[in-house]
Design a protein around this nucleic acid. Structure first.
Length: 1128
RNA sequence: GCGCGCGUAGCUCAGUUGGUUAGAGCGCCACCCUGAUAAGGUGGAGGUCCCAAGUUCGAAUCUUGGCGCGCGCACCA
């Protein structure tokens, strides 16, 4: 028997009890066991970092990541869900630094790398409990116990294998480049990391005069005007660049003969005048080529003494000044600035290319060398005394002031632009800086990556060629190394004699080396502190101590390079590293590669989506493993916004904590909001209001139907277990074995309709979910629940309340039994259809309807059943269409009443229906449902209208879709002709011949066939009528005295029912009634219908007198005063 | 600057290969129902489908150009 169901569900409490059932029953494990050996559905978990608190965005990803594995499992596939944690990198180090109150690398070194690493490892698990709680609370089924962890030795060694493989293929190289440098953190960052840190800031923008030199090396009155937004790079100036084919002019303040002269690109001359609010005379013209080769005085003498510029021999013979010369460069534009670019090769990538090009012009070893007065920590060295020891950006103001004092500052303003800051320490601006760094040659694989990408199924589709494709197009080599501490160490050892290198793929490979030493450093640490994790063996500083004999030189040693790697490489390696492959887990890796499905938010395009694709493409190519890999389908989620539509931010407090939502509305409410509220790739506004409002339309409605069923099934003793010995999986076929089961074909129409809707919905949902369209599937499901609640249950109430036992035997009420079976099957099916979406409430329903009813012989959990595919033989499309027509007619009837202010309580004599498209079968069918329509509309008589022309006019419209292609330009004429034509005559002609000819204005004629037109029916004025595209419904608005009397009586019943409710009576409580009214009409009506009144209100008696001790209410019914006394 | 996405009712959003009267939910107003009931239903008001030009017999839908918002990219010296 079913358990009683409370009418007011407490979803959060319910969910906690369901979670306990899953936990205690090991249901997740059983759901896997059930599919062992089946086709695999491969899912990869993109590892979150557990050292930050989970937020609403994670709830969305976890909901989507849960939905599809649950669904595919119910569809019969085997889907392992291995959790993972991202544990390395700057986020962790920065967090630890904050805790220790330190910031710079020097401070970390002072604190000690060893204890620092220990702190990092502990910090990784800081919010583990919150993550685990969230995961269980939102119903995300994933195996946390087998989670991969990027700092684990097994994982690190997999990454080592990948790096060694790339190194051996020459794809991992060390290069001297200008990199984006986090000075405070002392490391370079990858383009992905840099991209995350751009922010709009106002920087100083200065126009600086570079005086041209005369033959003696003395400054002249004429200066180049260069523009920069980084004054701190001026002390390291080496060149000035112009565009060769650009026109330049020399400006002098108008009318001042001895004023300074400025060289500037002609198109920008006017702009400079405006900025300076001065008028200039143009005193000279020249092309860029004329300037090339001229020497100038740099703004600072950091690297150059005053006087004649130093010269050096050229490769081609002769000699030339080494630096502080004008050079030609293509990157010079007139978009902004002056057309003359200050070149500081140390601090800009293009600047650096100028230096390389210049070096090539000079005899080997004589060209310009890179000058740089900035230390790696971002402070000026002693070479630039003015700023020595201070952070460069802080010196901008002093440098500008100094230039101004020396008369070299032409103009100064604020320049607003985007500038990168460190993504984990957002107060630290990045600078471009020359640095030796390790790179992966990803740019060499651009075409392969694009080919791989082309095969991936991206949702939404535009990601493929849009954002992600573009990112691949502009691919640059992956700046892999980090001069940091907590990360996967770069497994490259260098010969301290020859500088030759080799990469090692595993710890075992190190141990196998001759003369290996330094292993003991970790062993000693472990002996001193046995709690030390063995995983740290492969981390700094222990791994740095490990050295071995060089194979390249006698008596030389191999020592590891100091760098660790970008943590994005770790997560990108997870497809194989999660198993420790190739050192372990060969079978697992082969079975679980590539993934069928992954999903993360859009910010992962440059993150995890890219790192996975790049690593996989480089390592596995396309021969052994055809594209796409390592993932086939990827749902890219939109960004989550706060209540105000702005980015979620802790400080702005514009979002509720997930825990708060769970406690108030429950996880299912949140899941349904995410899944059914909008397509997943739109940015979702996470508002409490929206979540709250999503509850009644689906969850509560479903619950109400379920509760309705349980209440009456208990009252009637409908017990499926007593009628069905072996429940099987409670499919339609299983239920059909029940005693007293009526085959669907023999059931009443409403039942056939309901099951038709159920099975059609199932089929549609499967089709949509197979396309990863959960939003569409959810909408379909919502429509179904609405149909059950607002039509099946509504129209079946009488059946459930009818007399007699729900029994197929003699004396039983078979129709009632059918109603129960229909609703039972419907609810069981909906529970399964909705299970991947709202796993808790569906489980609660299943636990009662299946488990409580059948005990151990039924599937233990809804998640251990098969997903309903829909039985096409039970779908009757015609019935569905016609039922929609009845609902339409009922709805129109109510609209017609409303238009005449005739409330439904007032009975009317007749309703007449005119179908837009005359169909004898539909009319017959409607006529057969006269009772239903009369009941819904409270009318006495239903009729298909015999004289439609009284109520309606018809017009004939062209079917544009059919006639458009055929008539083309003549279409408007045809439309006019049809509008003017006599509709009745035209229709008659079409009915008789199947075609008709209409004249076109301006000559000609068109032949119209029956199928080419649409007939529209419009209600005439003056009738209580309402129309839809399918029908016109007219209600008779005339009232007879008897109808009025009945209406009054129903008003009285309504009033009494309201009083019962006010008195908080149970629906079985009996009452006695007393009426007092001076209206003979009302009294007469009541007397005539007294039996009806007492029956409806469960009254044992009714008198026309005051009832002592009764609750009384006086009211006025359409001008008839009445006092009602109710006594319990 | 370049690229991607989005602009539809007061709010949040649907809108299928271009087609006749552009929809839903919430909110609002009115009404109804009441043996699921601190629920439920019906109806109504509310729209220059961001703007403009073009293609077409016909554009919310396709093209181009603007405007606005969000995001991304980075040789902005």
């Amino acid at each position: 028997m079913f358990e009683p169901v409370r009418g007011k569900p407490d979803f959060p409490a319910l969910e906690r009890s369901i979670a306990a059932i899953w936990r205690d029953g090991g249901i997740y494990r059983k759901s896997l066991e059930r599919r062992r050996g089946a086709k695999r559905f491969v899912f990869y978990e993109g590892p979150p970092t557990a050292n930050g608190m989970p937020h609403p965005g994670h709830c969305l990803t976890r909901t989507i990541k849960d939905l599809y594995p649950r669904y595919r499992t119910m569809r019969g596939e085997y889907c392992e869900r291995k959790a993972g944690w991202d544990t390395h990198g700057l986020p962790v180090e920065v967090e630890v630094c904050k805790e220790l109150g330190i910031h710079s690398k020097a401070e970390i070194e002072a604190y000690g790398v060893e204890p620092f690493i220990h702190k990092c490892q502990e910090s990784v698990w800081r919010y583990m409990r919150e993550w685990e709680t969230l995961t269980e609370r939102i119903g995300f089924w994933i195996d946390l116990s087998q989670a991969y962890v990027t700092y684990h030795r097994r994982f690190v060694e997999s990454v080592w294998w990948a790096l060694a493989t790339l190194f051996d293929q020459g794809l991992l190289y060390q290069g001297h480049k200008i990199v984006w440098w986090w000075a405070q953190g002392g490391t370079a960052l990858s383009s992905g990391e840099v991209g995350q840190g751009y922010r709009e800031v106002a920087d100083p923008s200065v126009y600086v005069a570079f005086p041209l030199l005369d033959d003696e090396g003395q400054p002249t009155r004429r200066s180049l005007v260069a523009w920069t937004t980084t004054p701190w790079t001026l002390p390291s100036n080496q060149f000035a660049a112009v565009k060769a084919d650009l026109a330049y002019v020399v400006l002098r303040e108008a009318g001042v003969a001895d004023a300074p002269e400025y060289v500037i690109a002609e198109p920008l001359a006017a702009t400079l005048g405006e900025k300076l609010k001065m008028s200039f005379d143009i005193v000279d013209h020249m092309p860029g080529t004329a300037l090339v080769g001229r020497s100038y005085a740099p703004p600072f003498d950091t690297f150059r003494a005053a006087g004649r510029p130093p010269v050096a021999p050229l490769a081609a013979g002769g000699e030339a000044p080494v630096a502080w010369r004008v050079v030609a460069a293509d990157f010079v534009t007139t978009d902004s600035g002056t057309g003359i670019v200050h070149v500081a090769p140390a601090f800009g990538e293009v600047d650096y290319t100028v230096l390389i090009a210049e070096q090539a012009r000079f005899a080997a070893g004589h060209g310009p060398t890179l000058v740089n007065c900035v230390a790696p920590d971002g402070t000026f060295t002693d070479a630039f005394g003015m700023g020595s020891g201070r952070f460069v950006k802080e010196c901008d103001r002093d440098i500008t002031r100094d230039i101004k004092a020396r008369g070299l500052l032409v103009h100064q303003e604020q320049y607003v632009h985007d500038y990168p800051f460190c993504w984990r320490a957002d107060a630290d601006p990045l600078i471009q800086y020359p640095r030796q760094s390790w790179f992966i040659r990803t740019s060499q694989f651009r075409e392969q990556m694009l080919a791989n990408n082309a095969r991936i199924d991206w949702l939404p589709e535009h990601i493929k060629d849009g954002r992600f494709g573009n990112f691949l197009e502009t691919n640059v080599d992956w700046a892999l190394s980090r001069e940091r501490y907590w990360g996967t160490p770069l497994p490259i050892w260098v010969c301290d004699e020859t500088g030759k290198m080799e990469a090692l793929p595993s710890y075992a490979a190190i141990l196998a080396k001759p003369g290996v030493a330094g292993i003991d450093v970790f062993e000693r640490a472990k002996a001193a502190d046995p709690s030390l994790s063995d995983d740290l063996r492969v981390h700094k500083p222990y791994i740095d101590a490990v050295t071995y004999d060089s194979p390249f030189a006698k008596n030389a040693r191999m020592r590891r390079v100091p760098e660790v790697i970008d943590c994005w490489f770790d997560s990108g390696a997870m497809p194989f590293a999660q198993w420790g492959w190739p050192h372990a887990g060969d079978a697992e890796f082969k079975a679980q590669f590539p993934a069928d499905f992954i999903s993360e938010a859009i910010d992962q395009t440059r993150g995890w989506f890219y790192s996975q694709l790049a690593i996989s493409t480089l390592l596995f190519g396309c021969e052994a493993t055809p594209y796409p890999h390592p993932f086939k389908t990827c749902i890219v989620l939109g960004h989550m916004l706060g209540e105000d539509g702005q980015k979620m931010s802790k400080s702005r407090r514009n979002y509720r904590e997930p825990a708060e939502i769970f406690d108030k509305y429950g996880a299912d409410a949140l899941r349904w909001f995410f899944l059914a509220g909008q397509p997943p790739w739109t940015s979702i506004r996470y508002s409490e209001r929206a979540i709250r409002e999503s509850v009644p339309e689906f969850l509560l409605r479903l619950w109400n139907v379920y509760s309705f069923f349980a209440i009456y099934a208990r009252i009637d003793g409908f017990d499926p277990a007593s009628l069905l010995a072996t429940p099987g999986s409670l499919d339609h076929a299983d239920l059909a074995c029940a005693k007293g089961w009526t085959p669907v074909a023999d059931r009443g129409e409403l039942d056939r309709w309901m099951l038709s809707e159920v099975h059609a919905t199932a089929a549609e949902m499967v089709e949509r979910l197979d396309r990863y369209d959960h939003f569409g599937a959810a909408q379909r499901l919502s429509t179904l629940v609405d149909a059950v609640s607002n039509w099946f249950v509504r129209r079946s109430r009488d059946r459930f309340w009818a007399a007699g036992r729900a029994d197929a035997g003699p004396g039983g009420n078979r129709d009632k039994l059918d109603a129960y079976w229909t609703l039972y099957e419907t609810l069981l099916t909906i529970a399964r259809l909705a299970a991947p979406f709202v796993p808790f409430v569906t489980e609660a329903i299943w636990q009662n309807l299946a488990v409580a009813a059948f005990g151990a012989s039924a599937p233990e959990s809804v998640h251990l059943t098969d997903y309903p595919l829909g039985d096409a033989t039970l779908v009757d499309a015609d019935l569905v269409r016609r039922m929609a027509l009845v609902r339409d007619v009922a709805s129109l009837g109510r609209a017609a009443r409303a238009a005449e202010k005739l409330k439904v309580r007032q009975p009317l004599s007749k309703v007449e229906v005119i179908l837009a498209a005359a169909s004898p079968t539909d009319e017959a069918w409607l006529a057969a449902h006269a009772d239903l329509v009369c009941d819904e509309l409270n009318v006495k008589q239903f009729e298909i209208c015999r004289e439609p022309d009284r109520y309606i006019t018809r017009s004939v419209l062209p079917d544009l879709k059919k006639l458009g292609p055929r008539l083309g330009k003549d279409l408007p004429k045809a439309r006019d002709a049809l509008a003017k034509a006599d509709a009745a005559a035209l229709l008659a002609a079409l009915a008789a011949d199947g075609r008709a000819t209409i004249p076109l204005t301006g000559g000609g004629a068109a032949v119209i066939e029956k199928e080419d037109v649409i007939v529209r029916t419009t209600a005439r004025e003056g009738w209580a009528a309402a129309e839809s595209p399918h029908a016109v419904v007219v209600v008779a608005s005339q009232l007879t005295p008897e109808l009025v009397a009945e209406g009054l009586v129903r008003e009285v019943v309504h009033a009494i029912q309201s009083q019962r409710k006010t008195l908080d009576l149970d629906f079985t409580d009996r009452i006695t009634l007393g009426f007092e009214t001076p209206s003979a009409e009302l009294r007469g009506a009541l007397e005539r219908h007294l039996a009806y009144v007492t029956g409806e209100t469960l009254a044992e008696s009714a008198v026309f007198a005051e009832l002592p001790g009764a609750t009384s209410e006086s009211l006025d019914l359409d001008g008839h005063p009445l006092t009602i006394h109710v006594k319990t």
